[in-house]
Design a protein around this nucleic acid. Sequence first.
DNA 1: AACCACACCAACCGCGGCGCA
DNA 2: CTGCGCCGCGGTTGGTGTGGT
Length: 314
Amino acid sequence: MVRSPSIDKNGIRKGEWSKEEDDKLRVYINRYGIWNWRQLPQFAGLSRCGKSCRLRWKNYLQPNVKRGNYTKEEEDLIFNLHNQLGKKWSVIATKLPGRTDNEIKNYWHTHLKKRTEAQNLTLPSNQKKIKSNCQTTQISKEEINQISSQSDKHQQIISPTLSEGFADSPNESCCSEVSHSSSDAPPNDLYSWVQKNGENTKSHGTSDGDDLSRQLKIEDYESPHGSSSSEMSFNCSDVSDLMAWFEEDNSMTPTSFEGLDDFWSQSSFETDNYMINAYKQEQASMDAGLVYPGSPTTEEVFLWSYDLSDECIR
DNA sequence: AACCACACCAACCGCGGCGCA
DNA sequence: CTGCGCCGCGGTTGGTGTGGT
């Protein structure tokens, strides 16, 4: 039901997204947030244009995106808001948490357009005139802003932060922007994870002895911003080094991220802490039978996050 | 079974708005 | 003021599914 994958003359992939691409984008954004759509695909290891990534994230991968049938209430709301606002799909979308503008637009074209047309046909001619005037009248910017801001407030309340990780199901959590607080994240989670899984993961290494210890060996970390700092530089040659580093460095205790700069000043391992915790929760969900399709394993997260060949974080 | 028309929806495309130098 | 880059919005496209003939 989607366009078949193709590659344009610049080597940019188009068309249907593969599971691997989805996972790379999801992992990257959950880890680093959205800082520049244009450059993001390069750092996420994707041969896609920024627009395509943005659209895929916004309409499909972003947590909280509600899929499935529309309720009668949602349908009526779209219908009424369309009458009120016209084709301001993005504004309408803010009134329907979990629904995207693209989805609402599609729904309107395939379902509600007919309803509107049918209603117009049944209305007496004078009422049609009033109605059509109402639809075509440009709603003022102030009115749209008012509606949007009301919705923004609502969204802020309903949207969990990254501190909640992926919640029980990644579909139901939200970490689209870099807005992180971590008060409830267990400290030293990576430490316990390494203790628990480090040796096992080693044995699952890919070719060329590519085991966990090698994956975690980061000589010089440079952020996609291009800035590097001594705070971000560390060297762990194997799992025991990493564990020792954990024991020495209490800064691993999660703190609050106030903004993008604050986020980047944190050690990348701390960010990984969230990822691992999230995937552990996800694993628990899978064990409980709440399988979330397409989720990468923790090992895959590491493989994608650390690309040793070009010595930078992907 | 084969064909056709329509429905559906993910993804693409072009344009306008905005911020910044 | 102007030009540039980026982002988001709305319109459109194209492939697959489905139901009817």
